[in-house]
Design a protein around this nucleic acid. Structure first.
Lengths: 350, 350
DNA sequence: GAGCCAATTTAAAACGTTGTAAATTTGCGG
DNA sequence: CCGCAAATTTACAACGTTTTAAATTGGCTC
C-alpha cells in the first residue's frame, strides 16, 4: 500500500490538465495503482479494499474524471443511450416536450443519456428503427402512435431490442407500453356533453390506422348508446388534419341541417380550430355549443377557459416509460411492464 | 490479386451474420486483404488501387457493413455528432420542430448525427454546454435565444468549440450565427398597423435579457417615431409570459382609458392570447383592432386567417445553421459564417 | 518459518478503428 | 535478370475501457 516508491510525479496531473482529459491512467499514475484496480474501484467492485476504493474516488472527483463513453461503449457494447423517436405529428404543441421532460426525469441520475432521433431523416419511422438496431445506436427505444400491428414493434420484437411504446398494439407477444385510457376519455367527454343537454354530439377521431382510433371510437359509441343520444362522426377528417381543414369543416357543417352542438376534441389544435369555425358563424362556446377537449399542455385552458378539458399527463407518461425501459434493458420480464393511465380531472401539479 | 489461396471460408461471413455485426475484419477475411487496406479503401485513400477499392466497396455493401461509431470516435476523437440545445421556451408550438427539420436536412448525407440535448436535465443551459465540451459529447453545438453577453457563447469561445447560435451577441470576438432581422419585423409590423389607421400601437416584447429584445424595441420605436404615432409598451409582460397572463392583461387594458388598438405580436401564442382577451370584451379582430403577428408555423393563419402575419422561416434558419456549423467544424474562418434572415411576406414553400 | 487460503492487486488481451512506419509488389531502365 | 523508385499493401501500435486469469500480499495454523 506504500505509494512512495513510484514518485507519482506531477506529470500525469499536469498532463491531464493540459489535454483536458483525465483518464483511468491518470488516476492510476497519481495513486500508484494499476489501471485495472482504478477501474474496479470506481465500479465499486466487491474485491477492492475500502481504503483504496475511497482514495480512488477522491482523486477521481478531484481531477474531474469522467469515463470516456466511446471507450465504454466499444468495450461493453452498451451505449448507455436511450433514444426517442419523434414523429412529426406529435411535435406540434409540445407533445415532445412533455414526454421528454418526463423521460429526462426518469433518466436523471442514471448513466443513460437521452437522445432524440427526429424522424425527418427521410423515410418511414421503420427505417429509423432499423438503423438504430443495426447500428447499435441505443440500448433502448421509445416511440408513440402505435398501430395495431405496428411494423416498428414487430421489428423490435424480432430483434429482441428493448423498447417501450406509448400506445398499445394487438400482437400476441406482449411488450412494454404506457398508454392513456382513451376509451375512458372519449366516454367521459361524450357523457359530459350529453349531460350538459347537448342535442347531438360528434368527435374528431385519430387516423384510422392508429390503435387508439378504436379505443376512442368505442368510448364515444358506448356513451352515445347508453344515453340513446344523436351523434355523427366526420368521415373526411381526423386529428392529424391541418387546422384549417378542421375549421372549415366545422364552419360548413354548422350551416347545414341538424348540425352537432357537442364536440369531443381529443387534441388542443382541433379544439381551437373548432372554436374558430363556430365563432365565424356567430355561435358562442358555452352558448350554442360546447366542447370537451383533451388537454396535454396548459396552453388551451389558458387561452380559452371556457373549454372543458380532461387532462392527459404526458410528463407522467414519459417518466413511466423511462422507468419501464430501464427495467426492460435490465432484463426484467415484460409482465408488469405495462401501464394504463386514467384520465385526470385537473392539471397535474409538477 | 488472386483471392483463392486463402480459402475465404464462409466462417467470417456467417459469423458476421450471427453476431449481426460485420466489421473491417469481416471484410478483410472475405477479400483476403489486410484490415488496414480495407479501412483505407473504404476511406477512399489515394494510395489504394482502383480495383481493390471497388472490390472492398462491393463487399462492404453486400454484407451491410457500417463503421462502428464508438470505435471511430475513440480512435479519432471526433464524435460525428452535432448537438442542439433545446430551451423549454422554444419548444412549444414547434420551434424545435422547424429548426430541427432544417438541421436534419443540412446534415443529410454527411456522417453527422443530430442529437437533441433537452435542457431539462437540471440546471442552466450553461451546465449543459459545459458538460458537452468536457465530455466531448459532440463536435459542434447549436442553440438559440442568445443574450448580449451570453455565458454559453463565452464558454464556447474560450474553449474554441465550434458552434452556431440563433441570435446575435455583443462580444468583440465574432462567432457564427444565423439571426432573423427582428428590427425589420417590428418595423414592418408596426408600420402596417399604423397604415391601417390604428390609433395607438403596442408590442409584446421578448424578455429584456435576450439580445433581440433591443432589436425588436428599436424597430418598433423607429416606426412609431417616423409616423409620430401613439404607442405604449406593457411593462409587466413579455413573450415568455404564460398565455393567460397575456390574455388577462389585454382584457384588462382594453377596458381602461385610451387602450391600444394595434398589436404587434412576435409570437403565435401571444397573438392567440390577445385575440381571446379582446373578444372577451366583444371587440373583433379587423374591426375594433388589428394584429400583425410573427408566424413560424402554419397553425395561426390556419386557425385565424384574419391575423396579418410576417413569416420567419425557421426551417431555413435551421438548414443554414447546420451548414455553417459543418463549415466551422471543418475549420473555416468565422468571416462569412453569419447570416441575417429578412422577414418574409408569404409562407415559405418547402 | 513453511504452508495454505482468502483478500487484494495486477498484467495482458480485447472491443473496432485509424495513423505511422515498414514491408512487399510492381514497373521499368539498364 | 538486377536494381531502384513508385505504387500498393501490410504489421503494429495506439485510443480508454472492461474482462479474464494470474500474481502478489497478508493472516493464520501448525
Amino acid at each position: 500500500m506504500s505509494r512512495i516508491e513510484k514518485p507519482a510525479d506531477s506529470d500525469p496531473a499536469r498532463n491531464a490538465l493540459r489535454t483536458g482529459k483525465p483518464t483511468l491512467k491518470t488516476i492510476a499514475e497519481i495513486t500508484g495503482l494499476a489501471i485495472t484496480t482504478v477501474s474496479r474501484a470506481l465500479g465499486n467492485a466487491p474485491q477492492i479494499s475500502e481504503t483504496t476504493r475511497r482514495r480512488v474516488h477522491e482523486v477521481a472527483a478531484e481531477i474531474g474524471y469522467l469515463p470516456d463513453r466511446a471507450a465504454q461503449r466499444l468495450k461493453t457494447g452498451r451505449t448507455n443511450v436511450v433514444s426517442v423517436l419523434l414523429d412529426p405529428h406529435e411535435e406540434i404543441l409540445g407533445f415532445g416536450t412533455s414526454i421528454m421532460h418526463g423521460l429526462a426525469r426518469a433518466l436523471q441520475g442514471t448513466a443513460y443519456h437521452l437522445i432524440v432521433t427526429p424522424n425527418f431523416l427521410d423515410g418511414s419511422n421503420v427505417d429509423a428503427v432499423n438503423y438504430i438496431i443495426r447500428n447499435g445506436m441505443a440500448d433502448g427505444l421509445i416511440f408513440s402512435r402505435t398501430e395495431p400491428f405496428d411494423p416498428r414493434v414487430r421489428l423490435l420484437l424480432e430483434n429482441g431490442f428493448p423498447f417501450v411504446t406509448h400506445g398499445r398494439t394487438e400482437f400476441s407477444i406482449p411488450h412494454a407500453f404506457v398508454d392513456y385510457d382513451n376509451f375512458a376519455f372519449a366516454y367521459a367527454a361524450t357523457r359530459r356533453l350529453i349531460v350538459k343537454g347537448r342535442r347531438k354530439v360528434t368527435i374528431i377521431l385519430p387516423p384510422r390506422r392508429l390503435t387508439f382510433y378504436q379505443h376512442m371510437l368505442h368510448g364515444f359509441m358506448t356513451a352515445v348508446r347508453e344515453a340513446g343520444a344523436a351523434y355523427e362522426i366526420p368521415e373526411a377528417l381526423d386529428l392529424d388534419s391541418p387546422a384549417d381543414m378542421i375549421r372549415d369543416y366545422v364552419r360548413r357543417r354548422s350551416a347545414e341541417p341538424d348540425p352537432p352542438d357537442g364536440f369531443a376534441c381529443p387534441g388542443e389544435v382541433s379544439a381551437l380550430a373548432t372554436i374558430t369555425g363556430m365563432s365565424d358563424r356567430g355561435l358562442s362556446l358555452g352558448g350554442e355549443y360546447d366542447i370537451v377537449a383533451k388537454q396535454t399542455s396548459r396552453l388551451l385552458s389558458q387561452i380559452q377557459p371556457k373549454v372543458e378539458t380532461i387532462y392527459e399527463d404526458l410528463t407522467a407518461a414519459g417518466e413511466a416509460m423511462g422507468r419501464l425501459l430501464l427495467k426492460r434493458i435490465g432484463g426484467e420480464p415484460i409482465e408488469d411492464l405495462t401501464i394504463l393511465q386514467s384520465p385526470q380531472l385537473s392539471f397535474p401539479t409538477p
